[in-house]
Every structure is written in C-alpha cells, then in structure tokens.
Design a protein around this nucleic acid. Structure first.
Lengths: 199, 199, 199, 199
DNA sequence: CATGAATGAGTATTCATTCAT
DNA sequence: GATGAATGAATACTCATTCAT
C-alpha cells in the first residue's frame, strides 16, 4: 500500500523534473537527476513515466498549462481595461508564477517550443493547450472592443492573436536583453495605439 | 596552398551543421552527422571548429545574422508604409529566406533561444546581433511616426520593440499552429491600430 | 542486494586493470580492454571508478602496497641477519609476488614512478605508501646495528635508505639487463661491506 | 641546399622532443607539439624520424647517453676516493646536467625505463648504453679496491653493480620524496661500510 | 623538395532503460 | 511490488601519419 497516492507521486516526479528542466534544459536533464531530486527510485520513476520522452511531454504540457493559467488575469482585468493593461497584467502574472513555483517558467516555455520543433506529439500538446489561450485572448479582445476601446469593426481574432503574440517576444527579450519589464513591454502596444493627429 | 579557401570550408561545414540543427535541434545533431553531411573528415571539421559548442555558437550567430538581414525589408518599405505592412514584409522575407537557404530559419531561431538559456556566450552573441535589429525597428518606427502614421508623441523605442516582439510570436505560432501567415499575423497590428469611434 | 560485494567487484576490475597495465603500461591500457578482461560492462566499471585516471591511481596505490608487503620479509629475517641477506629476502619476495599474482609487479612499479612524474596525486599516494617502507628499512637497519652487524655509530636512517634504494635499481636492471638475480644484486652490498685489510 | 646540416636539424628536433618528453612524458608528447616547438614542418620532422616510435627511441638513447656521461665524474674522482664520494659526485653531475640542458634528465630516465618495459628495441638500446655505464662502475670499483678502500677479495663486478644500482633509487626517491640530496643518498653507502667494532 | 591540411581509426565517457533480487 | 546495479550503444574529440599542391 503506497503511503501517498499515485497522483501525488507523479506530481512529485514532475516537480523535480520541471525544476531540473528549467535550469538545465530537457536534454541535459538526466533521468538519474530526476531520480535523485524526486527522492524515488529509478524503477518508481519509470513506473509513472514510461520514458524520458513521456516525461518531457508531461513537462511541456504542464508548463504551458501553467502559462495558460496566467491569462486568467485577463478575466480579472474587467472593468473595461485597455489592451496594453491586459497584456501587462498577464506578463506580471507570468513572472509572479515563476517566483511562486520556484523555477523559471519562461525558460520551460522555450524548452517546450524547441521540443515541439521535432516531436509532433509535443507540438500537438502545445497546440491544444495554446488554443485555450488563444480563445481567452479573443474573448478579451471582444470585451475590449465592445467597451469601445477598439474600433467596432476590429477583427477580434486578429487583435487577440497580436496581443498573445507579444508573449513569446517578452520571453525571448527577457532572455537575451536583460532590460525588459512587463510595463516596458506592454507600453509598446499602448504607444502603437495612440491616435495619430486627425487630419 | 589549400584547394579551397578557409572561409569556403568553414561555410561548407556551417551549412551542413545549420541544415542538421534546423531539423534535429542542436543536441540531436551529432558531430558524426556534421562530418558526413559536410563531406569532410572529423579532423577537418575540428580544424575549423574547436568543439561542438563552438560550432553551435557559430550557428546561432549566423542564424540570427540571417534574421537580422530580413529587417532590410523595413528600409525597402519606403514610401510611408504603416507598421503592419512593414511587419508583414519582414515576415515574408523570413519565410523567403528559409526557402532560399533550404533550411528552416525560424526553427534555428528557437534553437538559439534555447541555447541562450544556458550558454552565456550564446546569450551575448544573440544580444549583440539583436541589438542591431532593435535599432532598425526603432528607426522604422521613427520614420513611420515622422510620416504621420503614428502619434507625434509616440515613443518610437516602445513601438519598435512591440513590432519586433511580434517576430518570436510568429515563429512560435507557426510551429504550434499551422495556420499563421505573414498577412494574418501582421493584420493583428493593423486591427489594433484602427481608430475607435471618436466619441 | 548485489550478487557480489562491492569490494569484490572493485577488486575484480582492479585485477584486470593491473594485469593489463603490467603488460601494456598505463596509457596503452584502454578502458575497453579493462571492460573486456574484467568481464563487466563499461557502465559497471565506471560505477566503481569514476575515470581512467582514478583507476590508474588505484592501481598505483595497490601496486606499491603490494611491494610494501614484501618488506615483511625483513621482519621475518630475524635472528641477526646481515643487510645483504635482508635485501635478498625482499627481492626474492618481490619475484614470488609476481608469480603468485600472475602479473609483473616491478613493471607496475615503473609505471607508477612514471605516472608520479606528472600526476601529483599519484606522487602523494606513492609518497605515503613508501614512507611505511622507509620506516621498515630503518627499523631493520636498527636491529642489524644493535646486533653488532653494523658499526654502533652507523646512521640507521641512511643505511635503511641505501638498502631500500637498491630496490629500484633491481627493478630497472631486471628490465634492461636480463641477468640480475636477487642473490647477485644483494651480493654487491655484502662485497661493499667486506672489511678492508686492517692496516 | 639546406641552410643547416642534417645533423643540426635532427638535433633541433630531438631537443624539442626531449624538452617535451621530460615535462609531459612520452605518450602525452604529441607530434604536433614537436613540430611546433622544433619550428619545422610536420613533413620535415617525419623526414628525420620515420615515426613517433623512432623519435621516442632516439630520445631514450640520448637520455641514457647523457646519463652515461655523468659517470665521467668517476674517472675525475681520482686520487683514491671512497665509494660513497664517487657516488655523490655522479649524483651531483646528474643534477648539474639537468640544469645545463634545461630539462629534467631523471624524468626522461623514468620515461625510458617505462618504454623499455614494452618496446624491446628501447630495451636493447638501454641495455647497450647502460653496459658502458656498468663497465665504468666496475673499473671504478676496481681502482677503489686496488687502492685499499675495499677488501682485496671484493668482487668488483658486484660492488660496481651495487653502486650503480643506487642511481635509480636516487631518481625515484627524488620524485616521490622531495628530501633527497646527492650527499644524503651517498652517505648511506658510507654508513653501510663503517667498520663494525672488531670483536 | 617542403609544406601543413586532411585523414579516420581509436578513446574515454555518458545515460536511458531494464530486470534480477 | 520496489529497488538500484548493470547494461552497452552512442558521442565528442584526438593525433600519428600521409600526400596533394
């Protein structure tokens, strides 16, 4: 009889693995390390994840899941909030999430994209998860438009997409340039939207 | 006197390696493959690149260099062109580049970001190269503003940044969703900028 | 619970390695050979010795340890025995040891000296082990002196050293000249000590 | 027409190689290093030495040749000199030689012994060279005996051997213990020869 | 003839996975 | 079931030697 439930064990392994993957990347993370950090035996780990590949997929899924969670910030962002503010709230959450969880979530996102390049299954997982995110951004754009902060004819799919697309940019810029903040990044959207002088 | 110039040999190796890295990623690309595809011997490859690490750095540098080249599209985009059109031109070029070169440049970009996460030298290389790109976007934003397509008070740094930030988004979306095109991606920016009804 | 104890496995590997090192020398001994001769897998060997370097150090330690063992012959050499006889007994044991173990212990000694030249850790190992040997020779010299076979004023440290120093000479001569025996080698000491005619 | 004679070139190469072999040992010395240090081209080096093996043999020969030279000290040691003083003179010369030549001759000796273990040709070279040394020690012992410093019945071959045998001991002790000097080492012989109290 | 770029077999080491206990 | 020792294919890199120029 296991002391703890199966889900707990699986989570324990996943946690260890995500921590490792965030700092070392998928391919430098060894199963031996996962075994050591999780505190279980090799056999036990392989009882929960049939292969490293499967574990990597689980990490990718959970990592984007975590990020998907950040867009709840958009819903909270009610009363009418301009797009830039919604984006900033999401980026803030993303950083907050890393602090809470104790590992670098954006780093894991990059790992996931990289893996999606060659593992179709990871690509599918990411596609499925990110579809939810896409819809959330669409809904946000719709609400924003409906409240008069966008042109009534604006294509809310396109706008949602554009706002969501700022996220990978934020993650990449954070990695290569040190100087980006949620505020600075989101301000670009606000500046873009400033009214040109009516002619 | 060597049969072919050193630069040619290095380029030959780099070409093989970029092709491989684009399809398999940095860590699945083996030196044996590079040797085989380049058509040289192991010793010869190591004569030009002291280690796999060094080769990976060279790939990263050249890949972002290639991408930096695409922003020339911005300069070409004269007479007054709205931001969305400039972006679209750049994205078009990016895809064109992949066709020309015969390997997936965006895939290499993702590999580069991933590597920048743990190799500070790659991070620096990317930082340096992307700084040029950043300046180009800033200049573009400035020209756009000066031609009255942005508010005269718009912060051109922020706008440039935002436009540039759409690029990683495009790359990631292309990988995980199949349905993004330069036009669809850029249109989000245009939609975002539509004038809300003057109240 | 492992089939055989860890020490047994380590000894199994060490044995194979010593056999190989004795015939081929440290640097021509390949890990592949060690793996093959020990009958284990590469992984197993690396489980017990982290690197070839570490294995080489273990060999050096054990080889000099074996040689150190031969000086027990000195203690056995009681009742009052002249220095030359003590030396001969030790040299005899050294050859006997090689026969018993099935590999050339003197050859390993030379390998150890060679390695000590560039690996400080091996130098230290040899220094530590040989200090014991040095003390044993000193004690032997003391006993010999106390039994009147040396001048009462003889410096037992110096005498012990000189006798011990005959050992590398024996090993080297055996390698390059074929004609040295424990008896012939030790006789030099006896001849040296013969009384010159009292004048 | 070569600027310098063939012998000079060969010596130039040998010099570079001996310097390298003394510091790194035969197997860590690479032909590329020999090429670099000698200042010649790879082809040129291979013009003078057909293989690394042959170069190693030449080094071994020259190194023991150098050491053989030290025993000239024995001839110089005329007027009747006791064995210990003759030995001390030789050891002094050995150290002086290293200083003069700028590389560690004893280190090369150890390399040579090590190589003799597996290369029969090196073994033969060493055997031939050391035979000269052996004879010199025999002659020294004879002279010493004839001058009354040894028993008239002393076996000069055995005595010569014993004195010569102190040399490897000196070299090994110098390597593993730091504290040996020509004087301390030679004194052991003197102490051994002190007259036990006439009974 | 001299050069030094190219060769490629050989080496130490790692690590995902299994399976005897 | 649970364990963790053992497996062994795979991998990056070296270096003595050659030979086209």
């Amino acid at each position: 009889m296991p002391k703890v439930s199966d889900e707990h064990r699986a989570a324990q392994i996943l946690d260890a693995a995500m921590r490792l993957a965030a700092t070392e990347g998928f391919h430098r993370m060894t199963m031996a390390e996962v075994v050591a950090v999780s505190g279980l035996s090799a056999g036990a780990v392989y009882g929960y994840f049939r292969s490293k590949q499967e574990l990597v997929r689980a990490i990718a899924q959970r990592a984007v899941g975590r990020i998907a969670t950040t867009i709840d910030a958009l819903a909270d962002a009610e009363p009418p909030v301009p797009p830039a503010e919604g984006l900033e709230a999401v980026l803030d959450r993303l950083l907050g999430l890393s602090d809470e969880l104790g590992y670098d979530v954006p780093a894991l996102a990059i790992q996931g994209w990289s893996e999606a390049t060659r593992d179709p299954e990871v690509r599918e997982i990411l596609g499925t998860e990110l579809l939810r995110v896409r819809r959330a951004w669409r809904d946000f754009a719709e609400r924003v438009r409906d409240r008069g902060l966008l042109s009534p004819e604006a294509d809310v799919d396109a706008v949602g997409n554009a706002l969501m697309a700022m996220l990978p940019g934020f993650i990449v810029f954070r990695t290569v340039f040190g100087d980006v903040t949620p505020r600075s990044h989101a301000s670009g959207v606000a500046e873009l939207m400033r009214q040109p002088p009516s002619r």
